[in-house]
């Protein structure tokens, strides 16, 4: 019972830290992240995927509710229009869980799943921004300048943090 609550707590603390770090990193490294090639370190999404990959599957950590909640905060605090990431984050969790039912979890399949998830976030995020008339980038520009670099940056972040985070989850496992 104690172990369960520790994994639960780890997930939630990490969720909020990654949420805040996303905005702080954007602010701290503006030339790299908001320059000619706009990139976003999707730490919140990355943390969600780590949690699904590494946490004990038998434990119920109410991941859909927390994902929905953090998506709502994300939209409200960062974007200013509700309903974009509120919807995308749970879809990412759904897709990740769905694929994991059919493939074995190892680092290669994890990278594949992660790339699929980031592409979903990028494409649906842009579509949502377009719908709410917030986008300043044309679609062609977005795919030429933002899509590739963002994918690459997130892949690097995912690989660098993969083993440390898996060890962190192992530490709080039975």
């Amino acid at each position: 019972m104690l172990k369960k609550s520790r994994h639960y707590l780890l997930f939630i603390i990490g969720l909020f830290i990654s949420f805040y770090l996303e905005g702080a990193l954007m602010h701290a490294f503006p030339y790299l992240l908001a320059g000619k090639f706009p990139m976003v370190p999707y730490l919140t999404v990355t943390w969600l995927i780590y949690t699904i990959l590494f946490s004990d599957r038998k434990q119920n950590i109410h991941i859909y509710w927390w994902t929905f909640g953090i998506g709502l905060l994300y939209d409200s605090y960062y974007i200013g229009v509700l309903g974009i990431y509120t919807f995308i984050f749970p879809i990412v969790v759904l897709v990740t869980k769905l694929i994991l039912e059919y493939v074995d979890e190892n680092i290669y399949s994890s990278i594949m799943i992660y790339l699929i998830d980031i592409i979903i976030v990028l494409v649906l995020g842009y579509t949502g921004g377009r719908m709410s008339h917030l986008v300043y980038f044309s679609g062609i520009h977005f795919f030429a300048y933002a899509f590739g670099p963002t994918l690459l940056l997130n892949l690097v972040i995912f690989l660098v943090l993969y083993f440390p985070i898996s060890l962190l989850f192992d530490k709080y496992r039975k």
Binding site: L25, I79, V135
Partner: peptide, 8 residues
């Protein structure tokens, strides 16, 4: 903070 978005 800065909005973590590449279209805004």
């Amino acid at each position: 903070a800065r909005t973590p978005s590449n279209w805004q």
